[in-house]
Amino acid sequence: MRTSKARPFISALLIFLGSLLLLHNGCENDADLQYEPQLNVFGVLSNLQQSQEIIVDRTYRIDEPAGPVIDDAFVVLSRNNFSDTLEFSYSNERYISGPFTLLPEVTHELLVVKEGFDTLHAATTMPGNFIIFFPVYGDTLTLQDTILLTQSIGAALYSIAFTQNTGGYGPFAWHEPDPSDTLVHIPVGEYWDEPVEGYFTIYIVAYDSNFYDYYFAEGDSIIQAGVTGGVGLFGSMWTRVTSSYVLFQ
């Protein structure tokens, strides 16, 4: 009597256990990491340098030990009809070009080939040249003043760095421009309030959008800034220099 009543129970149990065995075989092992390492580049082209520098690195699976940067890749920097193959410098642990003139508002490209990795392409458009209206050589800059310059075409970010003529570093700030303005206004008092006095060289740098995305984009940092087929940053900056007597009081 009891046997017949328990039959549905036991049958159901057996069906479930059989199903579980199938499931078990399919799911028991720890999930395999599914990731193919990629190239990782870092380079910020600068009009102040004759030679451009690129670091070629790679990503690592989370269970791989880290190694040094890659020293045997094929790295080509180009613009329009001009290109240069970069050489690896062991002292600097990066690839260095020969003399390479950067042109404002022109797209510069990077190609990196390394066996075992996808080929990496990258592109950056140099920010446009710009004019500093204030301060110019001989001006005195106070906290009440506004640094004034023309917009650098394509610039997503500016930096203002003060360097003492003796070599010491002075104030520094990042400035996000309003892209609708034709002139860039940088109110001094909004960025600095510490007393500073003396002659300074002022470096005003315009950065492209790749640079901005890599360091300043909201949310998670962008790990592919101007880069396809890998990760990293391929950005550019255009620098203008002036000097001034700084009187922050």
């Binding site: 990782n40 790679r58 990503t59 880290a66 990760v231 900056m237």
Partner: peptide, 11 residues
């Protein structure tokens, strides 16, 4: 799943 070096930069 992976990691890579992230370089900080200052003008």
């Amino acid at each position: 799943i992976a990691r890579h070096r992230y370089y900080y930069w200052d003008p």
